[in-house]
Design a protein around this nucleic acid. Structure first.
Ligand SMILES: Cc1cn([C@H]2C[C@H](O)[C@@H](COP(=O)(O)OP(=O)(O)OP(=O)(O)O)O2)c(=O)[nH]c1=O
Ligand SMILES: [Mg+2]
Length: 375
DNA sequence: ACTCAAACGTA
DNA sequence: TACGTT
DNA sequence: GAGT
């Protein structure tokens, strides 16, 4: 080892290339806090999100996932990335994304992201895919047919019922909701529901719970301590909302009876499903009184025993949910879903939880506030 | 070479 | 099964 | 696209 005379500096740390020691370098985003509005790497994140979205529009889900891993890491990183070497040490940043970052560090932008932003094709696909009921396949189909605007899409002869609704509601659904908009609707839901079921629990989840200033929709979990009462909960709530003129449309209404019209005389099946582990959902277009704008409201009914997991499952972010499920499976031989936490032995066993924090504790994950689940 | 979350809806 | 949504 |  002669000839080497490392200084302390070289041996221990080098700001240019070492990761910040505060950063939790992991492939499981749920293990570290991720703020809604990071102080660092904002511009870089924005550009990578452009590429991520383009991959989604192309149906390249796995590539999109890789970009999301990298984006989530950069959002959680406690200082600006200053070198390629530093970036490459982050789990989830490999050669491709590393090179994008290298370009960003020298030029201040990422050429591929710029090209995507300038591309009429992606602009059009982006608009079409925002229609409720339209995914990347349909967006691509419409683009190939030569459609350029929502107006032209409305004339398509093969629209499904849901797509027709989505196109009708397009302008309203594009408008983001402020927290005050959401509060207004929550007040109504609280009044209407509590009048009929005073003991009902009503919890706003989704981006609103994570602290987002503006949300695309309102997600609400509703439950009731007496599970027998909870049976007709969704039906009753939707009925009242319709009677009071609050609902314009039901985008879909997950009720056990509608399905199962195949072989079995399904009264038993449907009631069985209902009492057991299935959450009912109604995604609806809710007329906001003060503005008359139609807002997407997702009502989720949970059996009381599944209330904590349902709230955890619907608070998000999407990447937080994917990561906690992946962690449960790979590291704990468990399965997490919004209807419960399960131990994957034979036979599979439900692990009872009484709070959101219970799930973190059982999985051995340090508690993460909802506002820090923005991965 | 395999994995990447997991559930539920319509047509 | 394909495609959609959370 | 990246980790194992
Ligand atoms: C889209 C999506 C959401 N979810 C969960 C986590 C989300 O926070 C929750 C609500 O979904 P969304 O309402 O689609 O997302 P959001 O509330 O986080 O953001 P916004 O409404 O402002 O667009 O459902 C999944 O588990 N998987 C998914 O693919
Ligand atoms: Mg939401």
């Amino acid at each position: 080892m002669e000839g080497n005379n490392f200084t302390d500096e070289e041996l221990s740390s080098d700001m240019e290339f070492d990761l910040d020691p505060c950063f939790i370098n992991t492939k499981y985003e749920c293990l570290r806090p991720t703020p809604l509005k990071p102080k660092y790497n904002q511009c870089l994140v924005e550009l990578l999100e452009v590429i991520e979205h383009a991959r989604e529009l192309n149906g390249e889900e796995r590539n999109a996932l890789s970009y999301r891993h990298a984006i989530a890491a950069l959002k959680a990183y406690p200082r600006n990335i200053e070198s390629y070497a530093e970036a490459r040490k982050i789990i989830g940043i490999g050669p491709k994304i590393g090179n994008h970052i290298k370009e960003f560090l020298t030029t201040g932008t990422i050429p591929e992201a710029e090209e995507i932003n300038a591309s009429e094709k992606y602009q059009t696909l982006d608009i079409f895919s925002r229609v409720y009921g339209v995914g990347y396949k349909t967006a691509r189909k419409w683009y190939q047919k030569g459609y350029k605007s929502i107006r032209e899409c409305m004339k398509d002869p093969y629209l499904t019922h849901v797509q027709r609704l989505g196109l009708e509601l397009f302008d309203d659904f594009q408008k983001k909701m402020s927290r005050q908009d959401i509060q207004e609707i929550l007040d109504i839901l609280n009044k209407v529901i509590k009048t009929m079921y005073p003991d009902c629990m009503i919890t706003p989840v989704g981006g609103y719970r994570r602290g987002k200033e503006f949300s695309g929709d309102l997600d609400v979990v509703v439950s009731h301590p007496q599970e027998t009462v909870a049976n007709n909960l969704l039906k009753d709530i939707v009925e009242i909302l319709i009677n009071k003129g609050h609902l314009k449309h039901k985008l879909f209404y997950g009720q056990p009876s509608a399905k199962n019209k195949k072989d079995v005389p399904s009264e038993l099946i449907s009631s069985h499903k209902n009492i057991m582990d299935n959450l009912d959902k109604c995604f609806c277009a809710f007329i906001q009184p003060s503005t008359r704008i139609c807002r997407q409201v997702d009502l989720i009914i949970a059996p009381y025993s599944q209330y904590p997991t349902t709230v955890l499952g619907w608070t998000g972010s999407k990447q937080f949910e994917r990561s906690i499920r992946n962690f449960a499976k790979k590291e704990k031989k468990m399965t997490f879903a919004s209807h419960g936490l399960f131990l994957n032995v034979v036979p599979r066993r439900r692990v009872c939880v009484t709070s959101e924090k219970d799930v973190f504790d059982i999985l051995g994950i340090p508690w993460v506030e909802p506002e820090m689940r923005n991965c």
